[in-house]
Design a protein around this nucleic acid. Structure first.
Lengths: 235, 235
DNA sequence: TCCGTGCGTAGACAGTGTCTACGCACGGAT
DNA sequence: ATCCGTGCGTAGACACTGTCTACGCACGGA
């Protein structure tokens, strides 16, 4: 109650939740703890979020927006990027790297985003928040594999990324594959769904250095970072 | 306290949990509700399971054993099956179908099995319970794609199945792909990781009827059902 | 017969989400 | 200038949860 409370309580609650899930994980997001962090009593959130799930959904929406911002910062608009000479395969590798990097660095937020028992995924446009990123995924897949059923391939690829993120996140894939990095799994998934290597790529076919794009995707979003105001890193 | 309580309380608690998760879902698995179902007081489970997570882990272990039993019932030992003339690609399709069928019919149990925050995944050999099935997966992948890095490809394929199971389970993939069945996604994943179609398959290449194996995997485990004593379907 | 030990009961405690009643301060109308 | 109403946060209650601890009861061996 002492600091700069120029912003409304609703926003403060969401930001407290974003901070809390980043620090303590998804299971620490109790209604009362969020209220404590925001400096209000446990009954206060009810004025803005009638139920616990709605508050968690608002927090998760920030995560979706954050991920979306990172994606567009990395690959930009697909038409513009492809028109500028970028290859869809490389853009997809970058996008997949951004996705896995998000899932494995912001683990609590990613876990919350896919805990559908904690979210009201059906209402409130929460599901629609992840649709634009999937649309760009479909677009890039359609360009990378012109003959295929793009939505199905994109869905299978998304499922593969999600599965790698989760199974790698808690160590199952590290145990079974013996690898100490998720890069080979990502490579395998991309090669599987998009073809082994870009066959008629005029530049990257003879350039082995371009293969490290799935390993170091953050090089694309370091300087600009237009999604900084979403998470806690912008406050 | 009235019925046939010849079995010990430990077993009764696990079976009550298996029933409960099948009927009400994973979030209904409270310690006190399981005790209520077993007809004992809320403090009784503590004698056998020092903490809630250990009881949940025991229940999840039943799920892993159940899935494993269905898998071996469907494809049997890989060496024997392949030796008997079966093709690894078809066996993998059957195995994947069994996996997805399990995940989508026993949804509560599958959710519990991969809620690592509810399980003590690191101890107690719970993680080892899923290793033999992954070993057969690696074996079949090694036979289906001799040149590839089998553990990595098998890991990526497993992640793909897991992702499809989860994303399809709560409707995301149905929304994005527009399909009303997960079969095209499963086809896409198998084609991606194992090659588009078995190139030198002498039988199934011209037989479109063999393609329905991912859609109807239970035909393999109807009669024998060696895993019947695991879940509630055997009691 | 007595004792000890295994096993389940019962109550307490802190914590949770939800609901309800209560205040308090601010702004417009009289 | 006074009064009222309404928005907003407080505080307490309720049922429920997981964990801990003390108790009792029945059964088997000495």
């Amino acid at each position: 109650m002492s600091e700069h409370e120029t912003t409304g309580l609703r926003e403060r609650l969401i930001e407290a939740g974003v901070d809390l899930v980043a620090e303590e994980g998804a299971q620490a997001l109790s209604l009362r703890e969020i209220a404590r962090r925001a400096g209000v009593s446990h009954g206060a959130p009810r004025r803005y979020f009638p139920t616990h799930l709605e508050l968690l959904s608002a927090i998760a929406r920030r995560g979706f927006a954050d991920l979306q911002a990172r994606a567009t910062a990395a690959v930009g608009s697909p038409e513009a990027a492809v028109g500028a000479g970028a290859h869809p395969r490389a853009l997809l590798a970058t996008l997949a790297g951004v996705y896995l990097d998000f899932a494995l660095t912001r683990r609590g937020m990613y876990e919350l985003m896919f805990r559908h028992d904690l979210l009201e995924s059906n209402r409130l446009g929460l599901r629609e928040t992840s649709l634009p990123m999937f649309a760009t995924l479909v677009d890039l897949v359609a360009r990378a594999r012109p003959g295929a059923d793009a939505p199905v391939v994109a869905g299978a690829l998304w499922a593969n990324l999600h599965g790698i993120a989760q199974l790698w996140g808690w160590g199952s894939l590290r145990l079974t594959t013996g690898a100490d990095d998720f890069a080979p799994l990502l490579r395998a998934a991309l090669d599987a769904h998009l073809g082994p290597e870009d066959p008629h790529a005029p530049v990257s076919s003879g350039d082995p250095g371009s293969r490290r794009s799935p390993e170091g995707p953050d090089a694309h979003l370091g300087p600009e970072d237009p999604g900084g105001r979403l998470g806690k890193e912008g406050a």
